[in-house]
Structure formats: structure tokens, C-alpha cells
Amino acid sequence: MTAPGWYLVGAPWDCSALGRGERLAPAALRAAGLSDLVPDDAGDAPIVIDDARRDEATGVRALRQTARAARVLADGLDDAARRRPGGRPLVVGGDCSLLLGVLPWLRRSRSRVGLWFVDGHPDFLDGASSPTGETADLDLALLTGAGPEQLTAPAGVTAPLVAPDDVVLVGHRTRDLDPEAAAEVARLPDSIRRFDAPAVVDAPRRCGERAAAMLADIDGGVWLHVDCDVLDPADLPAVSYPEPGGPTPGQLADLLAPLFASPRLLGVSIADFRPDLDPDGRHAATLVALLRRLLSDPVDNPIS
């Protein structure tokens, strides 16, 4: 079975600049069957982030290289889309920072886009409050306009890349948090709508349907981003920052199904899978099975 209308783009992005395992995910997921599911493959963007120094002024790790990587990915998505008019990209990371390339690419041709952000964390720190300075701690803040201009307002695109009230945050943990994690949740703007992990576990399809309805009026379309750490680590521990209390793969599929079926869907990104923590490949197989289920009923709503 293949997924017509979709094409694959690899984003081997490691914002830690330490050669961590996320960068191996595109190749591992292809080998686990993703290439059979999405055989139209645009290859990997040539992303290089290997300078782990933190910028003195902002506290952001690998700031200049990250800004360059964002341009490289945006240009690669531009090229892939030109060759596949009407198709939808499935972008496989890498970590969540890949959105710093995806959203500028979308905004090159659209004045307004929405974002379904499915993640076990809010990703709303800043360079000073993040213990590592990694942009995977900051990406939602950066996308909504908070942070250094090199990342919040790339050349030719005005900030914010996505307005806070055009974001729906789904699956983040809100129970039994340590003080630092609780403070991060408290940083979120009130205008970002959200369904936390307990709500998702309790009623995944209803959360998905409501999230789809919340952004149904955005004519420019909506991007869906899924960080694998939204899943409970009992089911998928092969991520950098696992958090208990998340949905099972079946619950996640029920959550995502209404978003995949939305006529507003522009494309999907998958982030934070660590093949180096999956020696027998069973977690890669879980993710490919999830995508096979979600892509098995193609939606005839090509990107305009």
C-alpha cells in the first residue's frame, strides 16, 4: 500500500550539535517501511549543525548554523514542491527545530498559516531559561515571535511565523510537573489553544475533531507537527526527553485522524525519534504502522 499525493522529505536536524540520534531517523524510518508507504522521495536536506556553542547575547545554541539550516530546509521544500504541484510533504526529522525551516517555507507563499503542534512538551522556553539552549526547547516560542530575529523573522518573512491564536497545542504534560516544567507551561500565551495529555488520553478522537474545527477558518492552511515524545514512553521510549502520561499509539492515531482528514492540511512533520535507542527497530516499525494507518485513506484535497 502506498500513500498517493504525499512525498517524503528528510530533515536530519540535530539542534544539540552533538551528533545525537534524531538525525538518523529519516534513514531508519525509510528502512522500516516508510519508503514503501511514501515512495516519492525528495531526499534529505543537507543540514549541518555541528557548533555546540551558545550565542552570548541570546543563549541559543548554534544560532548562526540553525538560521542557515532553516534556510536550507525551506529552499529544499521549495524545490521539492515545485516538482510535485498539488502534493503534500511528509517531513521526517530530526528534532522539532525543523519547524524553523518549514514555517518560513509556508509563509513565502501564504500570509497566514495555522499549526497543530502535537508534543509532550510546550517547547516555550527562551535561550536564557533553557538549560541547554537547544532550539528544540524554544521552537514554539520562536515560531510565535519570541526570540532572536534571525529565527523569528527570516529574510523576507515577517514575525510571527504563526500567530499564537492560530496554534493548537496538543498532548503536553500538565500533571506532576517539576517546578521548571510547570514554569514553562505558565509561559504559554493565553491565546494558544490547547488539549493537554490527560484530555487526549481520555478522549483522543474528540480532541482531534475539536482541534481540527478550531483552525478550520484558516484559508492559508494548517501544518501538523508531531513530536514522538507525545507518546507514552511505555510504548515508545526512543526519544530524547521522554515524559510519562501520554497516549498509546492507538490513541494517538485516533487523535490525528481528524487532522489528517482536514481539507486545511498542508503537510506533516514527524520529529524526535531516536533510532540509536531502538536497536531492534521495533519502535521504528510502530511509527511506520501509525503512519500507514493515517495515510491509508487519502484525502483528495491537494495543496493550492
Rank of each mutant, 00 (worst) to 15 (best):
A128W: 01
S129A: 13
S129I: 00
S130L: 06
S130R: 05
P131Q: 14
P131T: 13
P131Y: 13
T132E: 10
T132Q: 04
T132W: 01
G133Q: 03
G133R: 05
E134W: 00
T135A: 14
A136H: 15
A136G: 15
A136N: 14
L138C: 09
L138N: 01
D139K: 01
L140F: 06
L140K: 01
L142C: 08
L142K: 12
L142W: 09
L143N: 04
L143K: 01
L143W: 04
L143G: 04
T144A: 09
T144W: 02
A146V: 15
A146N: 14
G147Q: 13
G147Y: 11
P148L: 07
P148D: 07
P148E: 05
E149C: 02
E149I: 10
E149Y: 00
Q150V: 05
Q150R: 12
Q150K: 02
L151T: 10
A153Y: 03
A153E: 02
P154M: 02
P154R: 08
P154K: 06
A155E: 14
A155V: 12
G156W: 02
G156S: 03
V157G: 08
V157D: 09
V157E: 10
T158K: 10
A159K: 07
A159M: 07
P160G: 13
V162M: 08
P164G: 12
D165W: 13
D166H: 13
D166S: 06
V167C: 06
V167S: 04
V167I: 09
V168N: 01
V168F: 00
V168A: 00
L169N: 00
L169T: 01
V170P: 07
V170E: 04
V170C: 11
G171E: 05
G171N: 07
H172R: 05
H172I: 03
H172V: 11
R173M: 01
R173H: 06
R173F: 00
R173A: 15
T174F: 07
R175S: 10
R175V: 14
R175N: 09
R175A: 14
D176C: 02
D176Y: 06
L177I: 12
D178F: 05
D178G: 15
D178W: 07
P179T: 09
P179K: 08
E180W: 08
E180C: 00
A182F: 05
A183W: 04
A183Q: 09
A183L: 08
E184D: 12
E184Q: 14
E184A: 12
